[in-house]
């Protein structure tokens, strides 16, 4: 604790001292803390197998997330660490190490060669998909099947060219998914086309091809959000992942309508269809899920009550008697504080 405080004050003091000598932005410190209660209607933990919030009938921890950012001239860095189940044992890289350490969310360096062209290298939140690990970045507290099955993070080097405020293009070389160092070399190539056709509407067309979850494959992804009116926002995520040599993959679509019923309260629905692809003789399976969520904001604090119902005809869930069931449901109440 003492060491951590000393380090923070030392960094902050250095920032103040440097700020008097060179044109530099102050050190940015931000982060979040989240905790939740979840009740599974079949009284089973891990009944719905999407990421995070896995406990049943328990007041449980999410994570504490701490991020530092600084820009000096054209160069900047972001370092973001998380501690707690959501950021450790339930996040993929740290789970591989027994979940006993911490999880790096972002650790990269960026250089702006000009107002239009920038290069970034390091470990970054993935550019694929609508949802993210940090609960601050999501409207719903539970996560989608598309998020759970897609990449969480990509280490690599990428170049971004901004043609205008309405169009930009990113291309990069990446390691395999969710690893701090490559296990199969720099094996993936990825790209992102951002277009903003009208004010308030942004769409990202993403592709990532190479070593990933389950083998070598290619994922195509569309992530878009449109603030249609002051109160109504619509988001969409659609993705298709094919693993080479009939290795499976997935396809799915999720729709995110959100409506602000007041300045502090917003209601949102997530409707998702998701299917896994056949792996050799093993046939894939199909999920549908509906999640109704409210966000109640007071300053940095957001309360997130949520009800979720999932269906799969292949009965992958459990009922109260521990028998396989086609339906599962849960209620959760989360508190997320962003600073």
């Amino acid at each position: 604790m003492k060491k951590l405080l000393t380090a923070i004050f030392a960094i902050a003091s250095t920032t103040c001292a440097l700020a008097q000598e060179t044109p530099t932005s102050p050190l940015e410190i931000s982060g979040s803390v989240d905790t939740y209660f979840k009740y599974d209607f079949a009284k089973k933990p891990n009944n719905i197998l999407t990421s995070f919030a896995s406990d049943h009938n328990s007041v449980s921890l999410g994570m504490i997330d701490l991020a530092l950012k600084k820009k000096t001239g054209k160069a900047s860095f972001v370092g973001e660490l998380s501690f707690g189940p959501r950021g450790q044992s339930q996040s993929i890289p740290d789970a591989a190490n027994g979940g006993s350490s911490f999880h790096i969310q972002n650790l990269y360096i960026n250089y702006d060669f000009s107002d239009k062209f920038a290069m970034t290298a390091g470990y970054m939140g993935t550019f694929i998909g609508y949802e993210v690990i940090s609960p601050v970045g999501n409207f719903n507290y539970s996560t989608s099947y598309l998020f759970t099955n897609g990449p969480f993070q990509n280490a690599g080097i990428k170049a971004t060219y901004k043609f205008s405020d309405k169009v930009s293009l990113m291309a990069g070389l990446f390691n395999d998914w969710n690893v701090y160092s490559a296990t199969r070399g720099v094996s993936s190539v990825g790209g992102q086309l951002m277009i903003a056709p009208v004010e308030g509407w942004t769409a990202y067309l993403n592709v990532l091809s190479g070593a990933g979850g389950g083998g070598y494959g290619t994922i195509e992804d569309l992530t878009t959000a449109y603030q249609i009116t002051e109160k109504f926002k619509l988001g969409l995520n659609a993705a298709n992942y094919d693993i080479d040599n009939d290795g499976g993959g997935y396809a799915g679509v999720a729709l995110y309508p959100q409506y602000a019923v007041g300045s502090a309260v917003t209601l949102g629905l997530r409707g998702e269809y998701f299917k896994t692809k056949d792996v050799g003789p093993v046939t894939g399976t199909k999920y549908t899920a509906v999640t109704l969520t409210a966000n109640v904001k007071s300053g940095g604090l957001t309360f997130i009550p949520e009800v979720r119902l999932d269906h799969n005809g292949d009965k992958p869930f459990f009922n109260k008697n521990s028998l396989s069931a086609p339906n599962a449901g849960q209620f959760s109440l989360a508190a997320v504080y962003a600073f």
């Binding site: 931000s30 991020a67 950012k69 973001e80 969310q105 972002n106 939140g125 940090s134 601050v136």
Partner: peptide
């Protein structure tokens, strides 16, 4: 502002 997936506001 909100923090995006890369830690930028």
């Amino acid at each position: 502002y909100q923090r995006d997936r890369y830690g930028n506001f």
